[in-house]
Design a protein around this nucleic acid. Structure first.
Length: 397
RNA sequence: GGUGGGGUACCCAAGCGGCCAACGGGGGCAGACUGUAAAUCUGCUGGCGCAGCCUUCGGGGGUUCGAAUCCUCCCCCCACCA
């Protein structure tokens, strides 16, 4: 493959790819690049936002480059004392290892696990002594640290920044140095860290890495970036129906973005998507949902998810499968029933929902929270938009 | 180290002795409308044995018939000065 074509593949969908000349020089040597990807050991639940990065790593892997996953167990076990969240748990070694395992298992759905390396950064970072750390810290200045936009924002808004937080980018940079990274891949929010890493590598007399950043996928709210902490994410591990439903719930405006970043559509295809979006937004989004489920599961799963979705939300019928609850012959209070089934967090919440006419039995609104429910035959209880229970009369033992 | 300001529910933010389970906004949930989209309107958003009760306003102690509100000690944050 010629260099131009090779570069073309690498560049697809990237925001930053720099410095380009350095990348060309590295490629020209004909050696596989060491590509670094940082993994957060506290977040084993991968989502579509991660997928954007993994998809790019897959490209690089297919081009013959070496993917190295760095599990940040060092910082995870030290814990981050910033913020008032004193309860934030410090992960134990076993937890980190377990998280890394499930993480890697999910990664393997995109990358070839046999060609992907995993390294734990505590194995070298924990060996640094004070002298080493001072030396590392002299690779960068406070002024330049404060250039990072979230530091800058916090500085301006008088939110504390702790010294060790300045250290983290440096440690990440040290990781790059340690594995002799040629390139680091991540979201645009990582750009600063990646650039610091270049300085660190130079500081140690190593050729700096090339940085490759990808757009941040917007979450299901259509506003903020997809993130577990915002609760706006679609996880690799979401069951097909859930995944399908979540895609359907994204705002129209971001549909083309999903086509672009998740399905990897090129500009020509995207133009077509936009045209269809104007014409038939619902079906265009449905196709997106279908394709995404297919990507993570299978064609059959996608078809099933679609059918189920249409059944429940378009035809407004009960789902084909739902949790079953037995109702004793003497009946059971409706609030207790909803609460015991785990549909709500508290009985007060159950009462509230009833008051708001959000609870239906076989389509009939239940208004009385003191109701003792008795049933003769199988019934369907609907709570809110998407929670269903199948009620079964319990027979005498 | 000094001086001043501040810590209120998921987040921001009012309240500054009883009318406070705590204004308002955001977020979330629910209902109507719909394409589980957007927009809009409405309601809710600590818990329970729910017309009542219990727990909450950084933590402990105190004053008072009564405290988020006053006093006191402690912890934490911010700004300026050093």
């Amino acid at each position: 493959m010629d260099l131009r074509h090779h570069l073309e593949i690498i560049r697809f969908k990237t925001v930053d790819l720099l410095p380009l000349e350095e990348l060309e020089a590295k490629l020209r040597r004909g050696r596989p690049l060491v590509v670094k990807y940082g993994a957060d050991p506290s977040r084993p639940d991968l989502h579509l936002g991660h997928y954007v990065n993994l998809r790019k790593l897959k490209d690089l892997q297919d081009l013959g480059h070496r993917i190295v996953f760095i599990v940040g167990d060092f910082t995870a076990t030290i814990g981050d004392p910033s913020g008032r969240d004193t309860t934030r748990p410090r992960l134990s070694e076993e937890e980190v290892r377990e998280n890394a395992r499930t993480y890697f298992e999910q990664v393997s759905r995109v990358l070839d696990p046999h060609k992907t390396e995993v390294q734990f950064n505590a194995s070298w970072l924990s060996k640094l002594c004070a002298r080493d750390i001072v030396h590392l810290a002299s690779a960068y200045t406070v002024a330049r640290m404060l250039e990072r936009d979230d530091f800058e924002k916090r500085y301006r808004s008088n939110t504390p920044i702790f010294i060790h937080e300045f250290l983290y980018p440096l440690f990440q940079g040290y990781d790059s140095y340690h594995i002799q990274a040629d390139m680091e891949v991540g979201g645009t929010d990582q750009k600063f860290n990646f650039l610091v890493a270049r300085e660190v590598q130079k500081h140690y007399g190593q050729e700096p890495q090339v940085i490759l950043t990808l757009p941040l996928l917007v979450g299901t709210d259509g506003v903020r970036k997809m993130s577990k902490s915002y609760g706006n994410y679609i996880a690799f591990n979401d069951p097909p129906a859930e995944m399908y439903g979540k895609v359907m719930s994204i705002p129209d405006a971001v549909v083309p973005e999903y086509y672009s970043l998740v399905l990897y559509y090129d500009d020509r295809q995207l133009e077509e998507v936009r045209r269809q979006m104007a014409e038939d937004p619902r079906d265009t989004k449905a196709r997106l949902a279908y394709e995404i489920v297919k990507l993570f599961y299978s064609e059959a799963a996608a078809r099933a998810a679609e059918e189920e979705f249409n059944r429940v939300f378009r035809a407004r019928q009960a789902p084909s499968a739902m949790p079953e609850v037995r109702v004793p012959p003497e009946g059971k209070n409706i609030v207790d029933l909803i609460y015991d089934a785990g549909l709500v967090a508290s009985k007060s919440e159950a009462r509230r929902l009833i008051k708001q006419r959000a609870v239906r039995l076989n389509g009939e609104v239940i208004e009385d929270p003191t109701l003792v429910l008795r049933i003769q035959e199988e019934s369907v209880l609907k709570v809110g938009k998407r929670k269903f229970l199948k009620l079964v009369p319990a027979r005498e033992p």
